[in-house]
Simulated assay, not measured.
Amino acid sequence: MTDMNSLQVARRVIRLEQDGLGQLADSLDDTFNAIVSRLKDIKGRVICAGVGKSGHVARKIAATLASTGAPAQFVHPTEASHGDLGMITPDDAVLALSKSGETKELGDMMAYCRRFGTPLIGMTCGADSGLAKASDYLLLVPDAPEACAETRAPTTSTTLMMALGDALAVALLEARGFTAQDFKMYHPGGALGAALSTVGDLMHAGPDMPVIGPDARMSEALIEISAKGLGCVGVVASDGKLAGMVTDGDLRRHMGPNLLDQPVAEVMTRDPKTVSSQTLAADALRIMTAGSVKITQLFAVEDGKPAGLLHIHDLLRAGVK
């Protein structure tokens, strides 16, 4: 096969799966809403199950659900028949995946759900299959052509199941009111954890925050800037609110023989850009780097009062991009 033929195959596969995804989106109905509502209210976990390629997809769906605030676990149907059914309780819900809906290994799990009243959600292409008939809720996947037509190896079908699992996880996330802060709890490490850090996680607060009063002289401001090593000092009014800040740029603009004797109020930048301590670190970085004038420090304020100072180096060290 030539490289050009390989490229044509790749495009054909992607377009077939794209068509299948379109059919899937169009096929969803109020059953999907009912499933989200039921999963939102369960006290236990979402037990995801499947065999073969459907099992791999079920594992991924369980991981996605768990990472977005819906406790979930993969249970292999064969292991379930040899003792792992004890992991499933009436407080749980079972999401069973099978393209045909006739996967025999799911039989014991389906019977267990019926016996103990555990909700069973079937995800299958088989509208008249055993799984479809046993399910309390049915997620019917369009029986779109597999991308590998010659062998009918699971390709399009697994893509559709994966997408349907993602749709379920995101819909459930939004129904639960799950926030970026909640998400961060489950993703503390790596680039994603860094992006979900807040200004409050990284800022310099308390005695490490460089601040000075508005009546101070620039000689005192320079001492505070040098002592804290963050390249600026905040100017705090008598009511405790941030009135301005003096940066290295302000020093250069006002450089002269009398600079050290000037009041900081005459040199400071008034109404500097600020953020909340709850602002995402990634958003703070965008504020610092947006527009033609870049800034390297941001004060975090609460009710107008400085709570901490964030330096761009803090963001870079944390891996925020």
Rank of each mutant, 00 (worst) to 15 (best):
E102W: 11
G55N: 08
Q18H: 14
I42A: 00
R12V: 02
P263C: 04
E105I: 12
P263Q: 02
G69A: 02
D314P: 08
Q73A: 11
L230R: 09
A132P: 07
L315D: 10
S6C: 07
Q23V: 06
S277C: 10
C232S: 11
A66C: 06
K53S: 02
I212H: 02
P263G: 06
T247A: 05
S277N: 08
T269Q: 06
M268Q: 05
T2S: 15
Y186Q: 09
S276W: 01
I47E: 01
M203F: 10
F32H: 06
L173M: 15
F299N: 09
V9Y: 12
T155Y: 07
L24W: 05
D239L: 04
K305I: 15
I295W: 06
K305P: 09
K305S: 15
A221E: 05
T155Q: 04
M218K: 09
V75I: 15
V9S: 11
M203L: 10
S129W: 06
F183A: 12
V170I: 13
A163H: 07
L316M: 14
S292G: 08
V46W: 00
I42Y: 00
M268N: 04
L85P: 07
P145S: 01
M162E: 11
G213M: 03
L315Q: 08
I225C: 04
T289F: 00
A147W: 08
F178G: 11
I312P: 11
D208R: 14
L120W: 05
E146K: 04
S67M: 03
C148A: 13
A191R: 13
A205V: 08
S6D: 10
T155F: 09
P77L: 10
G86H: 03
S276R: 06
A66H: 04
P263S: 03
D215A: 13
E146S: 10
V320T: 09
V301A: 02
A10C: 02
D261L: 12
M110L: 13
M268I: 07
G177R: 00
L280G: 11
L164V: 11
G213T: 14
P145Y: 01
M161R: 09
R11E: 14
P71F: 09
K53C: 05
A167S: 13
R252Y: 09
N33K: 08
A216N: 11
D29E: 05
A70E: 02
A282R: 11
L298V: 07
M161A: 10
A175W: 07
D208K: 15
I312H: 02
Q23K: 12
Y112G: 08
P119L: 03
G177H: 01
L16Y: 08
M245V: 14
K40V: 07
H56K: 04
V246S: 05
M109L: 15
E105C: 03
K99V: 12
G86F: 08
N5W: 12
G165R: 06
A169F: 05
M185F: 09
C113E: 01
L230G: 05
V46A: 00
D108L: 11
A127N: 00
T68A: 04
I61K: 01
K184C: 12
Q262S: 13
A72S: 13
A227E: 12
D303V: 13
I225R: 01
A25P: 00
